[in-house]
């Protein structure tokens, strides 16, 4: 375990930004902490980097307690949301900053900076360029190289890709994942996008109201979300409520269909699992809206109770016209059960 969090807490006034978080991070892992804004994920990573002092709990790097170690003495580096590049310094000076602080001689610094430019795929001539002349993607790479330059044991990322346009973000996500694989360092990444987390991470921790409510591999989170909050965080999914009618009988409230053996109080059904035709659980649903998603078509379906369900169908689904009613169904094995 490279990093262990023991009941870490941080309160600002009366708000508990981070509330009793315990977590262990194995060496070389790409861990992503996912949560909506205000969930405390940013505060958590600032605690880990030493930019905030915890109100309670402890933090261990390997076996050493580093709870009170200031940021400049921790062998970690952070890529900030704003990137926090030093605009009054060149690309090279930004990258060399940590080495300069340690007193590394200029020649050695320069050599290392050149390696790092190559690592983040920036041409060598960027060395003497001003950071203010760099594009958004180039600035990302400079920030990354700057963090790597201190040869950190752990790299923290505080939503660095949030302000980047979609296509560039996708490219950088893949590059970051490759960089992780190539360098073997421990990455702790913060994001509000579960999609981004799924792409890159070995393991995901989901945060809500200052607590970690679920940790697991992307597959585990995808297949078995811990509760409706996690499920809804995955984007557009159908969440159905189970109503127990006594004497062993139960039914889905939204579509009025019985269910013989419910596995929990709520059922998550992905849009692609809700398909036309007969199946384990089926219902008559009326199309209220249809949206082209490129290779698929998304349709919004209204049940007799007025609940709206979402289905995604490959192709253009020419027969699903607005106002028409069709039979839809899903298989019991496609249900992810949740208690809360």
């Amino acid at each position: 375990m490279i990093l262990s969090l023991a009941s870490l807490s941080k309160t600002f006034g009366t708000t508990k930004a981070v509330d009793d978080v315990s977590l262990t991070i194995p060496e070389g892992e790409f861990l992503t902490i996912v949560g909506p804004s205000g969930s405390g994920k940013s505060t958590l990573v600032r605690l880990l980097a030493g930019l905030e002092t915890p109100s309670g709990g402890d933090l261990f790097l390997r076996e050493a307690r580093i709870t009170d170690t200031p940021a400049n003495k921790r062998p970690t580096a952070m890529v900030f949301q704003s990137l926090a590049l030093f605009d009054h310094r060149s690309v090279g000076q930004n990258i060399e900053f940590a080495m300069k602080m340690k007193g590394v001689p200029a020649l050695a610094r320069r050599a290392r900076a050149m390696e790092l430019l190559q690592l983040v795929r920036l041409p060598a001539e960027y060395y003497s360029r001003s950071v203010t002349q760099c594009s958004g993607g180039e600035r990302q790479r400079v920030a990354l190289a700057r963090a790597f330059a201190s040869d950190p044991e752990i790299l923290f990322f505080d939503e660095p890709l949030s302000a980047i346009d979609y296509r560039l973000r996708k490219t950088l996500e893949v590059e970051l994942k490759e960089l992780h694989q190539r360098t073997g360092r421990t990455f702790v990444y913060i994001t509000h996008s579960l999609e981004e987390a799924m792409v890159m991470s070995d393991r995901i921790a989901i945060m809500q109201d200052g607590r970690i409510i679920q940790t697991g591999t992307p597959a585990q989170i995808y297949g078995a979300p811990a509760n409706r909050f996690v499920a809804s965080f995955m984007g557009e999914v159908n969440i159905l409520t189970v109503e127990n009618k006594g004497d062993g009988q139960a039914a889905f409230v939204e579509i009025g269909q019985p269910i013989a053996k419910p596995g929990g109080a709520y059922a998550m059904v992905r849009p692609e699992a809700l398909a036309q035709g007969a199946g384990d659980i089926s219902a008559q649903l009326t199309v209220t809206q249809r949206l082209m998603l490129g290779s698929r078509t998304q349709v919004h379906l209204s049940s007799e109770t007025g609940a709206i369900l979402i289905s995604e169908i490959p192709g253009t689904a020419p027969d699903l016209l607005i106002g028409s009613t069709h039979s839809f169904s899903f298989a019991t094995q496609d249900i992810a059960w949740m208690e809360t």
Binding site: P70, R74, A77, M78, F80, A84, A98
Partner: peptide
């Protein structure tokens, strides 16, 4: 900007640096 100082600290700068 406050985050520039934080970034410097995070990269190993002491108060004087």
């Amino acid at each position: 900007p406050a985050d520039r100082i934080e970034a410097a600290r995070d990269l190993g700068a002491n108060r004087w640096q």
